[in-house]
């Protein structure tokens, strides 16, 4: 058996001695063809990075689900490479309190076992629905929220009445910048929308909290203002006073605030100033003169509610 194989090989070897030009240069030729193929594949890939002005592959799916909705479903023009637009899952559920629609789009990267979810709905009260643990960031649509946890990232943006949540459990395969780029390039599927795999350079910028409420002086030269504790916390939560000028706080409680009725303003490295109201004494007047500049945090008795008094020179 083995002898036969050896014989055939020997015969071939004899044949090869007559060297033809094809045989001599075949590797160059094959290499060249392969190289050309690779180059053209690369060119196709590059061309795919550029925005294409055409209907996105999932557009027809979106448009047919569109009927009967009171808002236009948005799809991102940018999509990280490898995520299948055509095989996008679309689910409309009447999960709102009065059967309001909630649209969920799921894009998957089957090779990498990764997914990106887009959820779209009209919140009844957008300000009071909190993606807990998120930080405010700048988006093309104004203030959005970014939430990063372990391998998971989410971005919430509001476009008009519509709120869109974009999230993925696959940080590492997808970056939060890519999700932001998706959020920034959201648009209606009904138009000829550009879509691409190309991402503009993008950085995530946080939004600073609003400036503190600045306490004004009254006619007697006292910095007097109302501090209210409600189930939603202290109002104002952050306020600013001048050092060395007497402060008068009219402390009130509104609603059932449990531990919020007693609290303390803590002087950095110094004593606390107690604030407390009771059912019998609903208004408590607290007077003191801050003598140290800096942030004086204040808390309720069990640290549920917090705020900061900033003392400036």
């Amino acid at each position: 058996m083995s002898g036969k194989l050896v014989t055939i090989r020997t015969a071939r070897a004899h044949k090869d001695r007559k060297v033809s030009p094809w045989k001599k240069h075949r590797w160059w030729l094959i290499g060249g063809v392969l190289g050309l193929l690779l180059l053209s594949l690369g060119a196709i890939a590059l061309a795919n990075d550029e925005p294409v002005l055409a209907e996105a592959p999932e557009a027809s799916k979106v448009l047919s689900a569109q009927e009967g909705l009171n808002f236009g479903i948005l799809i991102p023009a940018y999509m990280p490479r490898g995520f299948d637009r055509e095989a996008m899952d679309l689910k409309v559920s009447p999960s709102g309190p009065s059967g309001e629609p909630l649209v969920e789009l799921t894009y998957r990267n089957l090779g990498k076992k990764a997914a990106i979810f887009l959820r779209q709905w009209v919140p009844g009260n957008a300000e009071m629905e909190t993606l807990i643990g998120s930080v405010p960031i700048e988006t093309r649509w104004g203030k959005g929220y970014l939430h990063l946890r372990a391998t998971m990232a989410s971005i919430w943006v509001d476009i008009g009445q519509l709120r869109i949540a974009i999230s993925s459990p696959n940080l590492g395969l997808i970056s939060e910048e890519q999700l932001l780029q998706m959020a920034n390039t959201l648009g209606l599927a009904s138009q000829e929308q550009a879509y691409s795999f190309k991402m503009e350079p993008i950085t995530i910028k946080g939004i600073a909290p609003p400036p503190p409420f600045i306490v004004q002086m009254n006619a007697e030269g006292v910095q007097e203002f109302n501090l209210t504790i409600t189930p939603g916390g202290y109002s104002p939560m952050r306020f600013q006073v001048k050092k060395g000028v007497p402060v008068k706080i009219n402390f009130r409680a509104v609603g059932e605030v449990a531990c919020g009725v007693t609290g303390a303003i803590t002087q950095p490295g110094g004593n606390s100033i107690g604030i407390a109201v009771t059912k019998e004494k609903p208004l408590s007047v607290v007077e003191f003169t801050p003598e140290e500049a800096g942030d004086w945090p204040f808390y309720c008795s069990s640290n549920c509610y917090r705020g900061v008094m900033t003392v400036v020179e």
């Binding site: 009071m128 909190t130 993606l131 807990i132 998971m152 189930p231 939603g232 916390g233 609603g255």
Partner: peptide, 22 residues
């Protein structure tokens, strides 16, 4: 915060928790 205390700031807020585990 309790939603049946209308008129109070923050009453009836909705918290969305998002998490995963490996």
């Amino acid at each position: 915060l309790p939603a049946n205390l209308p008129g109070n700031p923050g009453a009836g807020n909705v918290i969305v928790y998002e998490f995963t585990s490996s």
